[in-house]
Amino acid sequence: MNGTPRRRGWEGITDRPAWAFWILAGPFFAGLVVFGHLPLLWSIYLSFFEARNTVTPTEFVGLANYARMLTSRAFLDSLLTFTLFALFVVPLTFALSLGLALLLHRARRARPLFRTACFLPAACSYVVAALVWRLTIFNGLPSGLANTVIGHFGAAPIAWLAVTDPPWYWPVLVSLRLWLQVGFYALIFLAGLQRIPHSLYEAAYVDGASPGWTTFRHITLPQLRATSIAVLLLNLIAAYQAFDEFYNLLGADGTYPPYARPPLVYLYYTALGSGQDLGRGSAGAVILALLIAAVTLVQGRLLGIGRGPR
């Protein structure tokens, strides 16, 4: 502390590092503890109790809630549902947004126009998108847009969200998320592309490389490494948290079908919906949190996050 005599009163107090730090960061950390850490601790506490219809339980049941969740086929199915969903959504988002970014990067005329058009879906909420998908594009009537399109090819109308064999609800769920997020990630890729120095390509041409796949593989992709990792991670975590479009596409008046039920939807109904069981809901939340932490760590290791420049 340099104790400059000119700093008095408030400025003096806020010049002492400890005081200054907690004045500036105190509210944030208090909130983080109350709404970030405390819930986690309390859910661990609740998960050891019989907590049906109450948030202040008294009956300790040990690991019974965990056992019930881990042997519950519905919960395990929900993890499988998430995995399937991520397997579709993450690679598709990656490929499509990178492709779109490359197209945008090449377009020198009217680029802002195209960029705006591709970015606009990001303004839409999942609820509104679900409304459009469920009621007008993929409804089960012959007048639905998708059924009109396949009707031109002579196919019979499909009840997209109500049919399980084949599981037509998957294209509905996946296309919705792609529509909402591909443009957003394309812009992130575009920013990455624009940061690649031209000199790298020029040097490659001097060495005799031809534009196209070779330079893309050996220059563009490696240069996009940081961006790619960011896109993959954001995407995966977002897929884990999928709730909005599932709930709004498949939910109906308090019930949700036993298929295509991701973890958060299952936890929602277990803890707050028909289940009213905060003990099991909390146990499920803890299991899920551990799983996500583990996946993030492993993926971080594999992709080398935390090493080198960010």
């Binding site: 109350v34 709404f35 970030g36 405390l38 819930p39 986690l40 309390w42 859910s43 609740l46 948030v55 975590i237 884990y240 948290q241 709730f243 958060l264 936890l267 929602y268 803890a271 707050l272 905060l278 809901g281 909390s282 499920g284 939340a285 899920l288 949190a289 996500i292 932490a293 993030t296 760590l297």
Partner: peptide, 14 residues
Amino acid sequence: MIPAAVTFVPTFVV
């Protein structure tokens, strides 16, 4: 590391 959406049950409790 802990996605906020996963903690919605405990946060609701708090």
